[in-house]
Design a protein around this nucleic acid. Sequence first.
RNA 1: GCCGAUGUAGCUCAGUGGUAGAGCACUUCCUUGGUAAGGAAGGGGUCAUGGGUUCAACUCCCAUCAUUGGCUCCA
Length: 648
Amino acid sequence: MIKITFPDNKVREYESGINGYDIAKSLSNSLAQEILSISVNDELWDISRPINIDASIKLFKWEQTEGKHAFWHSSAHILAEAIEFYYPGTKFGIGPVIENGFYYDVDLPEGIILTDNDLPKIEQKILELSRTKCVFVREDISKAEALDFFTKKNDPLKLELINELEDGTITLYKQGNFTDLCRGPHLPDSSFIKAVKLLSLAGAYWRGNEKNKQLTRIYGITFPKQKLLEEYLILLEEAKKRDHRKIGKELELFAFSQKVGAGLPLWLPKGAMLRERLEQFLKKVQKKYGYLPVITPHIGQKELYVTSGHYAKYGADSFQPIHTPAEDEEFLLKPMNCPHHCEIYKLKPHSYRDLPIRFAEFGTVYRYEQSGELHGLTRVRSFTQDDAHIFCRPDQLKEEFLKVIDIVLYIFKTLEFKDFTSQISLRDPNNKEKYIGSDENWEKAESAIIEAAAEKGLNTVVELGEAAFYGPKLDFMVKDALGRKWQLGTIQVDYNLPERFELEYMGSDNTKHRPVMIHRAPFGSMERFVAVLIEHTAGKFPLWLTPEQAVILPISEKYNEYAKKVENLLNNCDIRTLIDDRNEKIGKKIRDNELKRIPYLLIVGEKEEQTETIAVRKQSEGDKGSMTIEDFTNLIKKEVDEMLEEHN
RNA sequence: GCCGAUGUAGCUCAGUGGUAGAGCACUUCCUUGGUAAGGAAGGGGUCAUGGGUUCAACUCCCAUCAUUGGCUCCA
């Protein structure tokens, strides 16, 4: 007999050799039906694997990640089996579980190219194989046996993987006609899989290295119930509706032109208005925090970037140099604003009393992103950073970090980004040589960031080895509608540029010292920020930000004149208002303007004209009744003030 | 850059080896309507660009450009 300890610390005795499924069954039949995987002494196991020792266990259902993990992992094997059925001779790479589903990287036989049209038949085969209730059989083998097996199978990719494994830890899983190298765990059999959708095909380099062979990657997702798949597909559709590229086009915020060039966004009037408002908003905050505005050109001499080191590091990936009639003269489009700001700092000597100095600029920069990297407004070749560089003494680092974090948090709060994460990137402690700057400075900077983040109550992840070579950093990330993570704000310490530009200040000891630089951009870039904001709000921007706050809808042409009067009054009160005087019925006008995400619709007809009022309809809430124009302007002002209210 | 897909009217999308279609939008007319689509008529396209095959190409082939899913999830 063995002792099994459950998560609630209850202990029950079972016969040695019992498996997870039977344990679940001993608790309840319905539970047994739902169990997908088990952890035995914190190690994930198949529920069909016999347990011969005293152990503490946890049982996992579909609702738990561990349960989904086993489910999708097994699904990946069935996908592989289906592929091997249609394309014998295929070599298999890896087939891991991902956040939503799984994929398998395969090297198809010479001359076979998969297209989307091939996916349905593979899906059908997967369902067919699932219905046969194929059992997943686990087998422990030696490294030599594993090498032998995959040599016979002629699968060099698996051999490469096995060669990196230690002897004695190798397991195979077999189901039907397919055997795969796999750590597990798996479902007991394939019949759990009731619904499948192969989502997309993509090329993927073996082990993510572009020097390696490109394999075909097949993405898929499976579910234990057809209904869950349907719900998931609806979710995907909903997410697509929030896509900033779609909404940006619908609301005429931005566009691209093939003739202007790929990755070079054109901000249309409404988008530009929105962006300007965001910029004004940040400028006001920055002024309060002691930032000084600067403006620098879009190009700079090549020498500037040689000094900064950007030319050596990014020169090849940037736009080609600009030549002038003067011989040997070369300019670059600026990929960064910092070198220009360093030159401004250098214009005059600084005392320790002057620091920190904070130069801020909405600086447009240009980088030649690879064509395949371009994506809407989130990955472009021309973008504007809400950039600032803080030149400070090392002992001021923490204080400055606290202030920048305050700005970021204020922005996130105002724009209602509640679901964000932050990451502290530190040096790789085992590889200190690859970083510039003294040990002492690094330690100071790293603890300044960690302490500042902790003081502000940030929920942070610390990543060792993720720091830039020139200093540690703190990044803020949010997710877009499709669950993709985007980095927005960033705060980076830099020891490199002050060194390269030989920046100095006079210390209290009357000797020269080197300042530290902080790069920071709370939005990151205006382009990316607006993109994420569009997806976050589904185009329903906050009242203070939206291009048009109210549209006046006359019931008929007879009230156009009164509508004009109302428009003037509201615009005089700085409420951005338009009239929709098309010859359409009121229902039609309401529908169209709701679709344009106008926050307030003001309906005026006979009643309103006579009583000098407007009938107010709020976006997605409906009729709010009639009120005077003065009441309405007060309402708007109050709403805007509340949104922008500063926290302390 | 590489692998797959896509490119037809302002927008969303059908379509065929033999002179191009729908809905919405737009223009005009009727209608003057009270909280998410009133009716009629009309204008609008070098079918991404450049080559090739063919009596004939928007359609088939090749190239280019652009858009798009992916190329970091480690058996």
